[in-house]
Design a protein around this nucleic acid. Structure first.
Length: 281
DNA sequence: ATGGCAGAAGCATTCTGA
């Protein structure tokens, strides 16, 4: 089963590129972020024609997430629902459509577009950390139910300095700060593993390149789009790749799709462990 | 320190992103 995530930076502008990519790759599940359109304006038909069902949670101009899947999604939930961090006002999170979850093929699929945060001094940074804390509470609830989880999306956080093309330049700043990394690790809590780092221990692999300063051509990127899976699913994990080619398209998204191959019929029990992951700060 | 680019809204320019 191929599971992918892609921040497309506008579903309407990127539609033909997404359809082309689906035709090439044939994913079973595709999580999209930054769709930037209200639900009534989402182009559902092109996906349905290819045999996919579509679940959307969008808004005008900003944010917006969607799950495209061959198997119809069940138990669809939009936003934190009633699992928001009890210390926070849930309503401040309901204005921004950044999370959609559903059960597909026995796995709890959670698609997130984590706030960017702007800068550490910004009110938006506080919002980002609070949002991540609510995500941790949300995952606590899923874990209590015993769900197998695939948490993916645009996290706007480089988990380690290996995930930044110039870590010295950006050290401690937005997407690279210790505060954000701690908040992310509090979401993961050792129960979820970074699929990409199971297979690749080296730096130099990016999922996002700034539109400015010729960043893609100079390969100055960040790895901020991630697919985290429950430890219990790790024996089924066969690969994780970042497909950087769509970033070279004409009028591309600034993000590349990330994809895992999960063999749900593999019942081997040799888990990958936390020690295989890179969480140093 | 600033701007560099892109998209949406909407028609000139602002807001937002990362």
């Amino acid at each position: 089963m191929l599971i992918a995530t892609w921040n497309v930076n506008s579903i309407r502008t990127r539609l033909s590129q997404i359809i082309d990519w689906i035709n090439q790759v044939n994913p079973d599940i595709l999580s999209l972020q930054e769709t930037k359109v209200i639900d009534d304006g989402f182009p559902v038909e092109p996906f349905e024609k290819l045999g996919y069902s579509v679940e959307i949670y969008g808004q005008k101009s900003y944010n917006g997430v969607a799950i495209i899947s061959k198997t119809k999604a069940e138990n669809i939930k939009k936003g934190f629902y009633d699992y928001s961090n009890s210390h926070q006002n849930i309503e401040i999170f309901q204005n921004q459509k950044r999370l959609i979850s559903a059960d597909i093929n026995g796995i709890k699929i959670i698609n997130v577009y984590v706030p960017n945060g702007s800068s550490l001094e910004s009110d938006k940074f506080e919002y980002k950390i609070n949002w991540l804390n609510s995500l941790a509470s949300f995952l606590d609830e899923q874990e209590k139910k015993g769900d197998l989880i695939c948490l993916m999306g645009d996290f706007n956080i480089a988990p380690s300095n290996l995930d930044i093309h110039d870590p010295k330049k950006y050290e401690g700043g937005i997407m690279a700060s210790e505060i954000e990394r701690k908040a992310l690790n509090n979401v993961l809590k050792g129960r979820l593993i970074d699929s990409f780092r199971i297979f690749e221990k080296n730096t130099g692999h990016w999922s996002w390149w700034d539109y400015r300063n010729n960043a893609y051509e100079l390969n100055k990127g960040w790895r901020i789009d991630h697919i985290y899976i429950s430890k219990e699913l790790s024996p089924k994990l066969k690969s994780c790749v970042i497909d950087s080619l769509p970033r070279g398209n004409l009028r591309p998204s600034d993000h590349a799709p990330v994809m895992i191959n999960l063999d749900i019929n593999d019942n081997n029990l040799d888990f990958f462990d936390d020690e295989d992951n890179f969480f140093e700060i």
